[in-house]
Simulated assay, not measured.
Amino acid sequence: MDLTRPTAPAPYDLLPPTATFEVTSESFTDGDDLPEAQVFDDWGFSGGNLSPQLSWSGAPEGTKGYAVSCFDPDAPTPAGFWHWTVVGLPADTTSLPEGAGVEGGAQLPEGAFMTATDYGTKAFGGAAPPQGDIAHRYVFAVHALDTDDLGIDDSVSCTVAAFNYLQHTIGRAVITGMYRS
């Protein structure tokens, strides 16, 4: 593995700008390493495979719903790697508990659902960079939306969900965790 390869651009820097607001996590600090709780639990990893706790505030006026995602732009693929997407979060939602991304979504608010990740599951999939690769960025984003209905269901991939929610994003809050195996 080439430890000197450049990192990919920050994914949301390539999109039209939106309003910003704040997201924090009790599970990790922005820019710091993710704890083992947020690491994958297969492929030779023995993490907890739990989505982190997230809280947000200051979304723009006109927010009618949210989508939450986790994307690794540093995955050694031409398209990065989607670790998690939740859509259908009501406008009055301001946090998700650690573990909200477990399969079945029992801790998600009514109406919210997860789409299929690049792991092929409808659940959070933790950090799992190739052994010896550069430190990967796990970009957790809360997207404030101008609609409460994206017209999609849980049969779509994270990429299709992003295509839809990015057309309705009026604000975005981002927090990034790092991980290297």
Rank of each mutant, 00 (worst) to 15 (best):
G47P: 02
G132V: 06
D42V: 11
F140K: 00
G125K: 00
A112H: 01
P76H: 12
Y165E: 03
D154F: 09
A144N: 09
S25D: 11
D72C: 15
R180V: 13
S157V: 05
G177P: 06
A135C: 11
L34V: 06
S55M: 10
E36K: 08
T20H: 14
L145Y: 02
V102I: 10
E103V: 11
C70H: 00
A79P: 01
T20Q: 13
L50A: 14
A10K: 04
I170N: 12
E61H: 08
A10L: 11
P129S: 12
S157R: 05
T85L: 14
V102A: 15
T20D: 13
Y179L: 03
A106V: 05
W84T: 00
G171M: 02
F21R: 04
S27N: 10
R137E: 03
P16R: 06
V68W: 01
V142C: 12
S55P: 07
D154P: 13
T121E: 14
M1V: 13
L108E: 02
V23Y: 05
S51H: 02
A162L: 08
R180H: 12
A112M: 07
T63M: 10
V156L: 09
G111I: 01
L34A: 08
P17C: 11
Y119K: 06
A161K: 01
T169E: 05
T93K: 04
W84R: 00
P6S: 15
P11V: 08
T117V: 07
T94G: 14
W43T: 09
C158E: 05
V23M: 08
S181N: 14
S25R: 01
P6W: 05
G171Q: 02
A100Q: 07
T4S: 15
N49I: 00
G99M: 05
G120N: 10
P52R: 00
Y119S: 15
Q38D: 15
W56C: 07
D74L: 00
P90N: 10
G151P: 07
N164L: 11
V102K: 11
V139G: 02
S157P: 08
P9A: 15
H143E: 03
L145I: 06
T159M: 11
W43H: 14
T121I: 13
T176A: 11
A127M: 04
G99L: 04
Q167M: 14
